[in-house]
Every structure is written in structure tokens, then in C-alpha cells.
């Protein structure tokens, strides 16, 4: 199984443009970038992928040990970068992939030229003198929530399009897999995501970095974005008017504009 097939890597845009690597966060897959990534295809080499265990990645490649830490996911990304021979790439990481990007930049500095961290959090759980926004029991509850939901439970689940949404953004084929994966893997990824602590990795980031912070983000509150900005030397913090945790879906234009301005 090649690295590119393992991570369902899709390459588009200009073959000789500056590479941009878009990494999705916990929950869904590369389709999270559907409203953003195409905007950069005119002048960049755009790379999309699914983390192992998500989307159309090869579930058989999931390794409890390797994928038991964010470093394992970062190693996967490093392998993708090397396979595609990326240089000076812009790594755009949403949610947990923001920290994965920080780890990739440290592991393979020759490939990463800039980081765009969308809704980053180096630690989700509160600690002495640090507000992450969550208590450990909240994460247990999330796991229970995932356990009691049917997404990914039933392979026969092919959602009917309801309401008056006669223009679903995803075709049926994608609808069947978006946000759905093996429940065991999803639960493990949730643990890895929400129990990680990458605060110590921030200070050594030495590439230009943009922190995109939404208003009213319950997963990565404003204080966390400011913390990331303070810890990464020379980073730029942009507070977006977009609300929620997924500006790539809810405010794609604002997201695109902020990234463009930074680049």
C-alpha cells in the first residue's frame, strides 16, 4: 500500500506552484476543505488527504501504536510530503491537525515553509494556570456520545437527503463516508486528540505562522488561540468574525481572505 493510497492523497492545482497541504481535524475528512482549497488551485499545488482512519483512507493501515499519538499522525504526513517531494509547503491544519502541523514542521523542516493553524489548541483539558476549556470527564462524555451515535455503526446507513436541501454539497458517494468511520478508530482518535498536550512544542516553531481564531469557538476558545499566538515566536493572530469551530465550512471566504493576506 503506497503512502498516497493509504492517506487517500489528492493533488491538484498548479504542478509548479507553491505546495499547500490541507489537513482535516477530528471528526470528518478532507471534504472539510471543499469550500476553501479550490480557491488556491489557481496559483498553488494543492494537496488534500485523509488521516488514517478517516474518510477514504486505508483502515487496514491503522496501527494502534503508531496512531496512539499525534506524532504517529505527523509521521504519516511527513511520509506524504517526502513522497510528493514537497518543499517550502504551506501546511494548513484545522483543529487537531494544527498541532500535527507543528510536529511535522519540527520533524521535516525541509518540507514546511509556513503554518496556518485553524482553531488550534495545544491542550484541550484545563491544567494549573492554563484554560483549555474542558474537564477530563467532558472527554469521557464525548466518547460516550460517539458510542451512542449511529454514525459509522451501520454500514447500511445511506442517508436520505431531507428537507428542502435539494443541492447537497456532497454527492451520494461522499455522503456515505463523510464523518463516518470505524467506531473503534474514531474513539481512539478522539482520545489522542483531546488528551494530547503539545504546549511544549510551540516555542520551537520557526516558520511563519498564522493563527486563525474564530469567535465563540467552544472547542478552541479565544484564550487558547491567544496562548498559541504568544507561544509561537513571530506568529500572526487573526480573530475572525466567523463563529464556531469550522470556519472552513461556515465562513470559507473569510478563511480564504485571511490565508491569502498572510501568504
Amino acid at each position: 500500500m503506497s503512502v498516497l493510497a493509504r492517506n487517500n492523497v489528492r493533488v491538484g492545482g498548479q504542478p509548479d506552484g507553491r505546495p499547500m497541504l490541507f489537513a482535516h481535524g477530528f471528526g470528518c475528512d478532507q471534504n472539510m476543505w471543499r469550500f476553501v482549497a479550490p480557491e488556491f488551485e489557481a496559483d498553488h499545488r494543492v494537496v488534500l488527504f485523509d488521516h488514517v482512519g478517516a474518510g477514504a483512507s486505508d483502515l487496514a493501515a491503522y496501527d494502534e501504536r503508531r496512531h496512539g499519538t499525534l506524532a504517529g499522525y505527523a509521521d504519516d504526513v511527513v511520509e506524504i510530503c517526502r513522497e510528493l517531494e514537497l518543499e517550502d509547503a504551506v501546511f494548513v491544519g484545522h483543529s487537531v491537525s494544527a498541532m500535527i502541523g507543528v510536529l511535522v514542521a519540527a520533524r521535516a523542516p525541509e518540507t514546511i515553509g509556513a503554518l496556518v493553524l485553524v482553531g488550534p489548541s495545544p491542550r484541550y483539558i484545563d491544567d494549573h494556570g492554563y484554560v483549555g476549556g474542558f474537564a477530563p470527564e467532558d472527554i469521557d462524555e464525548l466518547l460516550e456520545s460517539m458510542n451512542s451515535n449511529f454514525l459509522g455503526w451501520s454500514s447500511a446507513m445511506a442517508p436520505a437527503i431531507m428537507g428542502n436541501s435539494d443541492r447537497p454539497e456532497l454527492g451520494e458517494e461522499l455522503t456515505a463516508s463523510f464523518c463516518r468511520t470505524d467506531p473503534e478508530i474514531a474513539a481512539r482518535f478522539a482520545r489522542v486528540t483531546f488528551l494530547s498536550d503539545n504546549r511544549a512544542d510551540l516555542a520551537s516553531v520557526d516558520v511563519p505562522t498564522l493563527v486563525l481564531q474564530c469567535s465563540d469557538d467552544v472547542i478552541a476558545p479565544a484564550a487558547v488561540g491567544e496562548y498559541v499566538h504568544r507561544q509561537i515566536p513571530g506568529s500572526v493572530l487573526v480573530r475572525m468574525t466567523a463563529t464556531g469551530h469550522c470556519p472552513n465550512l461556515s465562513a470559507p471566504q473569510e478563511t480564504i481572505d485571511a490565508i491569502r493576506a498572510f501568504l
Binding site: A135, I139, L142, I161, M162, G244, H245
Partner: peptide, 21 residues
């Protein structure tokens, strides 16, 4: 609940936006 809120942000809202329901 807090766990449900994470689930909402990471699964529910993206699904709703992408598939309309």
C-alpha cells in the same frame, strides 16, 4: 452537554452543512 458540544462541532455541524440534513 460539553461532550455533546464537541460532537456537535466536529460531526453534526459539518454533516449538516455538507449534506443538508
Amino acid at each position: 452537554s460539553p461532550g455533546g458540544r464537541i460532537y456537535h462541532e466536529t460531526h453534526y455541524a459539518p454533516l449538516l452543512r455538507m449534506q443538508g440534513s
